[in-house]
Write a protein that binds this DNA or RNA. Structure first.
Lengths: 155, 155
DNA sequence: ATACAAAATATGTATACACATCTATTACCG
DNA sequence: CGGTAATAGATGTGTATACATATTTTGTAT
């Protein structure tokens, strides 16, 4: 039969460090969403990028990075798989330093097709929390993102 | 003189996706802490690991991973820089499959020495939020970590 | 005692992310 | 207009992270 793992405990003692806590939470949530998105061709990160593009329409790499709080040079490489797999396309802007990113029609279609899987992940998380907890979370994440971005610039 | 960047807007429209939001928030917070920790020899992630070890004392790689919601195999490589730089040490456990991780005395000392920098980061974030917001955040992060871990296993 | 299942970690592979630095382009100032 | 500073993005380098797979060790059923 199966042996019990040595560590059955399931407690996530909060650390005093907000950074440690939020990173840990992000890993936990990412794992859940990735479990659901597995096999769709998109993982959590790229799903986020595509979703942002659905909202934003054609947008420069820099603006996309600013919105996602992602270094724009990081996007240089993060966008590659999406380009390779035909989700997005790019063209130079009027300002020829800029690169404008956009979804392909095919990317838009595929995104719609996998929305149900995303919703399932979202629903699973939601149901593991209270409604109040969920709302608090969304509000808090907006707050802390704003606060951290502000504090960093304020330096 | 300096030209204004084309994108002065500072709004982080929340996305419907909790995963996208928490990952974005984690990036924003990590950047802030890294700014403060810069030059200390530890970045946010490794700081978290060391802090966890301060709390936990000697602990197996697997248990450490469980606590941090980090795949234990990921730790195989994440611990390398800490070993290399003398923050931690390891030895085999009684169960010789296990590897027990512990801080070195030197690591403990260095950690204490850089605590003020960490506190400064924490303080900067805190002051960019309300007290209520801060408390809500800590509670929420505990909630969502627990919920995500639960939901994932429940599958 | 042996055989098989499960656990702990290591390694291969791919993506995620930041910062420093480099290049090309653009903006501004005199 | 010409020179310099600032921006947008690409690339080098190093860490972060997951999962699949391989290896070693341990537990358990017969």
């Amino acid at each position: 039969m199966k042996h019990a793992p040595k560590n059955p405990d399931n407690a996530f003692f909060p650390l005093p460090c907000a950074c440690a806590n939020i990173r840990r939470a992000a890993r936990a949530v990412t794992r859940l969403y990735d479990q659901e998105l597995s096999g769709t061709g998109l993982e959590a990160t790229q799903f986020s990028i595509v979703m942002a593009l659905v909202k934003a329409g054609e947008i420069s790499q820099g603006h996309l990075g600013a919105f996602l709080v992602l270094d724009s040079t990081t996007l240089s490489r993060s966008l590659r798989p999406l380009l390779r797999e035909g989700w997005i396309r790019s063209r130079p802007g009027d300002d020829r330093r800029e690169k404008l990113i956009d979804l392909t029609p095919e990317g838009r279609r595929r995104f719609s097709a996998l929305l149900p899987k995303w919703e399932k992940a979202q629903e699973r998380l939601r149901q593991a929390m209270t409604d109040a907890g969920w709302d608090r979370m969304q509000r808090t994440l907006a707050d802390v993102t704003e606060a951290a971005a502000l504090a960093r610039k304020t330096r």
